[in-house]
Design a protein around this nucleic acid. Structure first.
Lengths: 246, 246
DNA sequence: CGCGATTTGTGCACGCCTTCACAAGCGCCT
DNA sequence: AGGCGCTTGTGAAGGCGTGCACAAATCGCG
């Protein structure tokens, strides 16, 4: 975690409700809280304590309370948080009430899986267009959509109201695709290609590199092995849960 | 980002080289540096300055120097870093010289893509076994391997020397699979299921939730939209690169 | 051999995030 | 109505990570 520091809203005296200036670390945890809350709602819970929700989300209860306090006071002392109300609040903050339209570029190995991943639809996103530069792929049906050539991206972004682009191409093509997405008006990019993208100010990029996650685990394996090898090294360390994305 | 605080190596006076106690944030960036270094090596560079490598990895040069200084002094003032030497060092630290054996559990939509992802093999990992609980899937060939029933996991872990498990099952099955992996002796787990896993001390879990990444981007879209809507809101913010992990 | 240009390695200060500990508030029971 | 137990919300402290700015070190050239 590093940059991504955005300006606040200085003299916001308009009728529009002030957009809360949440810490980046808090934002990254809100989706996790949201998922836990949906589970609780399904199991019939009306309210939940910070302790209970924290356990379900895998975090410290103090951290959870501080995170939620940034959104405003939606809890009742002595009782807990109203599950349904909190769900609405978090979904509003995250902008999920708009069911954002997503474009997926690159329908190779990974792209196929992403196009068919039902976890997107169930959590507020619609993949509305698939693109590829390979003529072999263009025209093929995939998950209810037809793969289109990347030249059509600009038009599709406008017509479908796309605001988020997902890049699942090889690393060599990723920068060109990013440029195309930006030119088309997309301002948020999720990049699965193992490379650094250069984008203009105002465009947000998040990166997911599957191999990097394994390499981090590999480091801890290496460390654990070296600890158990030396005399005095303990074989059990308090290693534990760790989420990506900070 | 949160826990994962491991004990240091107190009285390490043995012949085994002291395992460096790297900050977690540094560890998360090492794989990125490694990728950039491989690119540089391929293009024929013998040495690289901190400025150059930082640009290739998408970070600040001061941060890069501090990160590398934790590994020891492998640079030459006035010249830069020896690319080949640094690659060896980082690969050693990350434990990649052992080409770790990985087990993949769940060959559904996402599992298929992971099994065929060549980015693993090219970066030090071998997927050596595929598992599923669905009898329909068991026996099918996939990426040069045959899908096995999850009951065989314990035996396979020992025989193949598996140290890392990847969970690509639905959320409902993930905890049971994690328990099986731990029981079989696996001490590192990469979890793609959208749920919190409970594991004993000494086992490391990293989580990748594709929908969460989109939700974080959605938040920034929402924020940007609300900024441009109010008078005085600027339409271009210094949003920028942001990696997951850490 | 000495000097200047270049680049690393790091001490320091700042800011963010986490965690503790507790006061304030709410509901329930008597 | 009053008191008691429970839970939230938050002030303060501590730790971690980042980035600046500079001293130390190395190479190349005259």
């Amino acid at each position: 975690m590093s940059q991504q520091r955005h300006g606040s809203t200085p003299g916001n005296t308009g009728a529009v409700p002030a957009f809360p200036d949440l810490p980046e670390a808090t934002i990254a945890r809100l989706p996790e809280y949201l998922r836990a809350l949906h589970n609780l709602a399904e199991s019939g819970s009306e309210t939940v304590s910070s302790e209970g929700l924290a356990a379900a989300a895998g975090v410290n209860s103090a951290k959870l309370r501080k995170d939620l306090s940034h959104l405003g006071s939606y809890g009742t002392r002595g009782v807990g948080y109203d599950v349904a109300l909190l769900i609405d609040q978090i979904e509003y903050i995250l902008g999920l009430d708009q069911r954002r339209a997503v474009a997926l570029v690159g329908v190779g190995n990974l792209g196929h899986a992403l196009a068919g991943y039902d976890g997107f639809a169930s959590r507020g996103f619609r993949i509305v267009a698939l693109f590829d530069s390979d003529a072999e792929q263009v025209g093929k049906p995939l998950g209810g959509l037809t793969v289109r050539h990347i030249d059509e991206l600009g038009r599709a972004v406008v017509e479908e109201g796309i605001t988020i682009g997902v890049i699942a191409t090889p690393a060599g093509a990723a920068q060109a695709v990013a440029d195309d997405l930006v030119a088309a008006g997309v301002t948020s990019i999720l990049n699965f290609a193992p490379c650094v993208l250069s984008v203009p100010p105002g465009v947000d990029v998040r990166k997911v590199d599957l191999a990097i996650e394994l390499q981090i685990l590999s480091f801890h394996e290496h460390r654990k092995a070296s600890l158990t090898a030396i005399p005095g090294g303990r074989s059990a360390q308090p290693g534990n849960q760790e989420a990506v994305g900070s």
